[in-house]
């Protein structure tokens, strides 16, 4: 595979997406568009279909109905992945446990033979430094905490220099300081590469801190889409409940 050289970000369209597992309909006609270079946050309670939607966008799941378009072409179009660079940061990190941290981060470059070995080593060190894990190249994933694994997964995604990057719960299991660092890195990555970012989260602070637009999803349906300030003004009872819930019992 040759290295795709296009640095422009991509536009994503989701049209009438439906997906069921057994008798349970997880996505019920979801539609939205993510513009080039936008940070689009999908927010909603657990089990609302956010992660399944993300897997459809990256092409890991086939929809029962509806379309997923990347720059106007179906996500499963032959050769699409050779033309556009996409990356996903999984909730669990999904690091290859048989490889070291350095091998995980450099996997994409080595497998596609995109750079000479000394360059790959330099890039690995650089990306690990960005996520605050300098010098961990020789560690194995089993030696890392959940948060560190997630940061290695982010470094692995950064190596791809993606035009579209998907984050599945990027701040879950992280302490607040690291969560802020990850949020800042999502913003910095957009500044550096103008990548289109889709973030799935139920972390309200992260969503309102980084999003250009937020879509609120519940029971496989989009309830509301808008800028963060629009969402704060939403009158939809479920959206209001999700945004205003706190630990204090209601009188």
């Amino acid at each position: 595979m040759s290295a795709p050289t296009n640095h422009e970000s991509v536009r994503v369209e989701v049209r009438g997406l439906r997906k069921s597992f057994a008798d349970h309909e997880v996505l019920r006609g979801v539609s939205f568009t993510v513009e080039r270079g936008e940070i689009f946050v999908l927010m909603g309670p657990s089990g609302s279909g956010k992660s399944v939607l993300l897997k459809h966008i990256i092409g890991l799941e086939e929809p029962d109905a509806g379309e997923l378009l990347l720059e106007g072409q179906g996500i499963h179009t032959e050769g699409l992945r050779d033309r556009y660079r996409m990356a996903m940061v999984f909730q669990s990190g999904a690091l290859l446990n048989s490889l070291t941290v350095g091998e995980n981060v450099g996997l994409y470059l080595r497998e596609h033979r995109l750079r000479p070995e000394p360059d790959i080593r330099r890039i690995i060190a650089e990306k690990l430094d960005i996520v605050g894990l300098k010098g961990t190249e020789e560690k194995i994933p089993a030696e890392l905490s959940g948060g560190m694994k997630k940061r290695v997964a982010l470094a692995r995604a950064l190596v791809i220099e993606p035009q579209l990057i998907l984050y599945d719960e990027p701040t879950s299991e992280l302490d607040p300081l690291i969560a802020i660092t990850i949020g800042q890195e999502i913003l910095a990555l957009r500044e550096r590469t103008h990548a289109t970012s889709i973030v799935v989260t139920h972390d309200r602070d992260l969503a309102f801190g980084i999003a250009d637009r937020i879509a609120m999803i519940a029971d496989g349906e989009i309830l509301e889409i808008g800028r963060p300030e629009d969402l704060r003004r939403s009158q939809h009872p479920l959206v209001r409940k999700f945004l205003t819930a706190d630990f204090k019992p209601k009188p």
Binding site: G59, A87, A94, L95, L96, L107, Y108, H112, I160
Partner: peptide, 17 residues
């Protein structure tokens, strides 16, 4: 099988491997 369960194979696919 363990790679499939822990999404490592999904991660390979997202990297176009």
């Amino acid at each position: 099988g363990s790679m499939a369960v822990y999404q490592e194979i999904d991660a390979l696919r997202t990297m176009n491997i």
